[in-house]
């Protein structure tokens, strides 16, 4: 947990992103707000299509427009609204102040440039180092992420690295300019568990060393439990629950979070005879939400859920939940 420094390095308020498609609009992100402090790791969980990646890409203008359109909201990086700055300034931010690790290490490196070149590129662009300094920095970075024989591997091409190694290179690139905020978009999803364990270890280590804020997107609740300080659960383009990591797992309030935690089997403890399922499918996001997006799959659904979209309401200790049902606000998980 961060100590002392309570200023938010990144604050997002009411972000709304809409895609225009031939068959109408898709409201991928609906009024999403969150913040991170320096040294803090915010986990964002949700199923595919819940808008996790789109939210993060909206922050630093990585979505092509059209079709994407960031309609509303503000993204404050140290008080500066990134949605209003010039394209030039945004280029300085990307890779400089905000690092981004993409999901697929296989395709997010350029196959025709050497790994060394790709690491040196942001360093020279953002930090103004000359070739020699940039090279020294690149070697330092590769050593930092645990690639053996770093100096010798700078002139290698991405295909000469394995998946886990490539993801380390991606992390090295994202860290190249000492970003204030690191956004990691499912960085371990494409990797095996043993390699994932290596990457998680590196990230823990780097966070302690460098003290940046990290936003970690994943659909794996196990990963989140291990590394996050706070967790935001996304469903259908909205944050439905947000809490520090312990209350989220021990005292989940939103019916979706509760159900999600029950659907996953574990490698230890009791083995259930049958897996709990969440019936049905996530909703289509054809229009701005006018009712609770989880209503069709919710065991606690009642009249009000069909009429209004719940807003996130505080239930104490930095825990908030977007649900009308009184059980979400008072009781522990007994009935749900």
């Amino acid at each position: 947990m961060p100590d002392g420094d309570t200023r938010n390095v990144l604050e997002v308020n009411n972000l709304r992103t809409v895609f225009g498609t031939r068959s109408g609009e898709v409201h991928a992100v609906n009024s999403v707000s969150f913040h991170v402090k320096p040294g803090e790791l915010l986990g964002v969980v949700g199923e595919s299509g819940s808008g996790k990646s789109v939210t993060m890409m909206s922050l630093i203008g990585l979505l092509p427009s059209p079709p994407a359109d960031v309609r509303e909201g503000e993204v404050l990086l140290d008080g500066e609204d990134l949605l209003k700055v010039t394209p030039d300034r945004l280029r300085d931010v990307r890779g400089g102040e905000v690092g981004f690790i993409f999901q697929d290490p296989m395709t997010s490196l350029n196959p025709v440039f050497t790994v060394g070149y790709q690491i040196m590129e942001p360093v020279r662009r953002h930090m103004g180092l000359n070739k020699k300094q940039a090279k020294a920095r690149a070697i330092e970075l590769l050593e930092l992420v645990g690639i053996p024989g770093a100096a010798g591997r700078l002139s290698d091409y991405p295909h000469q690295f394995s998946g886990g190694m490539r993801q380390r290179v991606m992390i090295a690139i994202a860290l190249a300019c000492d970003p204030k905020v690191l956004i990691a978009d499912e960085p371990t999803t494409a990797l095996d568990v043993t390699i994932q364990a290596q990457i998680l270890e590196i990230v823990e280590d780097l966070r302690a060393k460098l003290g940046m804020a990290i936003i970690w997107i994943t659909h794996d609740l196990g990963v989140i439990a291990g590394i996050a300080d706070r967790v935001a659960v996304m469903y259908a383009g909205q944050i439905v629950e947000h809490a520090p990591v312990f209350p989220l797992f021990n005292d989940p309030r939103h019916p979706y979070t509760r159900a999600l935690l029950k659907t996953i089997p574990t490698v230890s403890g009791e083995r259930a005879a049958k897996l709990q399922v969440i019936e049905g499918q996530p909703p289509m996001l054809g229009a701005a939400p006018t009712a609770c997006p989880f209503r069709d799959r919710c065991p606690l659904v009642f009249d009000r859920c069909h009429a209004e979209n719940p807003l996130r309401a505080d239930v104490g200790d930095g825990h908030d939940v977007a649900c009308f049902h009184p059980l979400a606000h008072t009781a522990k998980e007994a009935v749900a």
Binding site: Q198, G222, A225, G226, V245, F249, T266, V267
Partner: peptide, 27 residues
Amino acid sequence: EALLSAVPEPDPAKAGQKRDRIVLQGD
């Protein structure tokens, strides 16, 4: 053993005490 210990537990309490995690080196 290593494979099992590398599976993240969806429980922050267990994750905290699970320092005996075996992290395999290399590929």
